[in-house]
Simulated assay, not measured.
Amino acid sequence: MSIAAPQLEAWLGRSDSLAPFWLATGSEPLLMLESGDLIRHRAKELGYSDRQVLEMSGTADWSQLMDAAASIGMFDDRKFLEVRLPGGKPGVKGAKAIQDFLAIPPVEGVITLFTLPRPDWQGVKASWWKALSEKCTVVDCDPIPRPQLPAWIAARMAKHGQKASRDVLESFADLVEGNLLAARQEIDKLSLLFPQGELTRENIEASVGNCSRYTIEGLVDAICLGASDRVSRIIDGLEAQGEVFPLVLMVLTSQLRNLVKLRTAQEAGQSFVKGVFATPALKAGARRLKLQKLTAALSVLADIDRISKGLDVPERDSDPWIELKSVSLFLARSR
């Protein structure tokens, strides 16, 4: 079973018991932290008062895992065991220990929560990860997609008795995009500065600083979805953050090639392309962008690559960021 982190609190509220094995994983630290807090709190309500935390790594003594599950306190018959693996790699001994631990029947009266980042594409093929994914109730702690961020902010505000219009929430989301921890801090701050009720744009602008953290993946999604204003903002943000330009260019070029493959497959009536992880945004981009414009953009990216290496390209600006914004907006505005 898999539960999205934003839905976990409601799900736990409807549950009279907890599964023996849990896995909080993803790439959003705040959601992983809060998911662990929610599960731990619900376990305590259900009588799991004995708690033990194991901070593990690839070089840790993994024999602790089985020992911890077997040793329940003298005055408690229920235990909550947390296994934290911040590095995401258990090592050879850890991998075996996890598989052995999950292979036996759950110890009665013990709930175990594993918390770790989701492995890369190679790691998810490992036997220990497959065992975790199959045996545990999984809480997906991935970043909130930008289109869903205003609703996430609104839900957080509602807990403090505050609300805002859709336009104000969109403005708020622009200021905290890609930085959920900052978003939570700003929402908490607003609850202290203003009374319950509706917040105005002026309230937000006076109190919330620009703490957005932009990503290359966000840029690709914005291009695919035709969000030109967001494309411009993200590129400016990536440059201001000091993002390594060759990396930005490499990822964007790779994803445009994937779009070409997806578009070609769509025109041939095919729904699957081997070797392409087609996210909803990429699928939307492949439907929206024609092959002619995609191939033209790839040609421009080749020019930008030469510019970034200090070579002159006729009729192109010498600043690769300017050219990158130009071709990205060309794609975002294309129909």
Rank of each mutant, 00 (worst) to 15 (best):
D167W: 03
S191C: 01
L175Y: 04
Q196E: 09
S171N: 14
A240P: 00
A206Y: 04
D236C: 00
F194E: 03
V168P: 04
D167R: 08
R166W: 09
I223Q: 05
F172L: 10
R166L: 08
G209P: 02
E198H: 00
S171I: 06
E170I: 13
G226S: 10
A206G: 08
G237F: 02
S171H: 14
K189P: 10
S171M: 12
T215I: 09
G237L: 01
L225A: 14
Q196Y: 00
I235W: 02
A227M: 14
R201W: 07
S171K: 12
G178C: 04
E198F: 00
L180F: 06
N179Q: 07
E170T: 13
T200C: 03
L190Y: 06
G237T: 06
E170C: 08
D188Y: 11
A182N: 10
I216Q: 07
L193T: 04
I223D: 07
R233M: 10
V231F: 11
A227Y: 15
E186A: 15
I204A: 10
L192W: 02
D174H: 09
L180A: 05
L169F: 11
E170Q: 14
G178E: 01
T215C: 08
L199G: 06
L219H: 06
A222Y: 11
A227H: 15
A240V: 00
E239C: 02
E202D: 14
D236W: 01
A222T: 13
N210Q: 12
R213S: 10
L193F: 01
G237V: 03
E177Q: 14
S207M: 03
S191R: 03
S191E: 06
N210G: 04
R166S: 12
A227K: 15
E202I: 05
I216P: 09
S171D: 15
S207E: 08
L175A: 11
L190A: 08
T200V: 03
N203A: 07
D229P: 06
E217N: 13
E198K: 04
V231Q: 11
L219E: 06
D188N: 15
L169H: 10
S212K: 12
L238M: 00
A183R: 04
A182T: 09
Q185A: 15
L225I: 10
T200L: 00
F172V: 08
I235E: 01
A173G: 12
N203W: 02
I223H: 04
F194D: 00
F172E: 00
I223E: 07
L199C: 07
N179L: 02
L180V: 05
I235F: 03
S228Q: 13
E198I: 00
L175I: 04
A206F: 04
D221K: 05
F194L: 05
S171F: 06
V231K: 11
I235K: 01
I234F: 08
E239N: 04
L181T: 12
R233I: 10
G178S: 06
